[in-house]
């Protein structure tokens, strides 16, 4: 799959998955180009989350996955998961302090998501689910992944913050030429963010509707 992009360069496939099969999933084959965003919809339980977990190598499965042509086995698991970043629908935190969750305790840029620096002072459980969800995105981006697997990244957010998150991800995608898989139930959001969208049903990709 080769597409010419706006700079006139030849763009290569970023992440490629072949015959992914796991409990209730697949076989699924897909390829996503660098700098593109693929929307993924489908009824609950159709295997969207499972597919993302397989791509991030969190669940056992059959099939091969590669990143920029390099097979997953050539990466150590931590290397792979740093490059192929999964943002789960619900964020979980292992320490009481926000900064403990960022690499080298580096403070992230908060303005783009309308978070105030107060979040660094408060214990995590006092933050709203929306604040935690936005922080989880910043936590993921701090790793500078080459692939973003986003599982309903705006589910708990109000309209303003949905727009901020979409803008931040778009900016990150442009800057890093990363590819994105964006799971959502929101058709209008897909229209805004995705270059193409795929539908899952019963563990399989249904059709390619660009």
């Amino acid at each position: 799959m080769v597409v010419a992009c706006c700079f006139g360069m030849i763009e290569v496939v970023c992440v490629e998955a072949k015959d992914i099969q796991s409990a209730g999933l697949g076989p699924v084959t897909l390829a996503i180009d660098s700098g593109s965003c693929t929307g993924l919809t489908g009824p609950s339980g159709s295997g969207k989350t499972r597919l993302l977990r397989c791509l991030a190598d969190l669940d056992c499965h059959e099939g091969d996955v590669s990143l920029n042509g390099a097979s997953r086995e050539s990466f150590t698991p931590p290397e792979w998961r740093t490059q192929v970043g999964l943002l789960p629908a619900e964020s979980f935190w292992w320490s009481e302090r926000v900064l403990d969750h960022f690499p080298y305790k580096q403070k992230p840029e908060l303005d783009s998501l309308d978070l105030s620096p107060v979040v660094f002072e408060q214990p995590l459980r006092q933050l709203s689910s929306g604040q935690r969800q936005r922080l989880a995105l910043l936590r993921l981006l701090a790793n500078q992944p080459k692939v973003l697997l986003l599982d309903e990244p705006t589910a708990n957010l109000d309209q303003d913050n949905i727009m901020r998150v979409e803008a931040l991800i778009a900016a990150y995608r442009n800057q890093h030429r990363c590819c994105v898989i964006w799971v959502t139930h929101d058709r209008a959001q897909l229209e805004r963010v995705a270059d193409r969208s795929l539908t899952m049903a019963n563990g399989r990709l249904d059709g390619d509707s660009s």
Binding site: L58, P78, T82, P88, W94, L140
Partner: peptide, 19 residues
């Protein structure tokens, strides 16, 4: 979920279960 949150961010398994 807490262990897997750390795995997802590229932590090593033995670090994720250290505590």
């Amino acid at each position: 979920e807490i262990i897997e949150a750390q795995l997802m961010l590229g932590h090593r398994a033995q670090d994720a279960i250290a505590s």
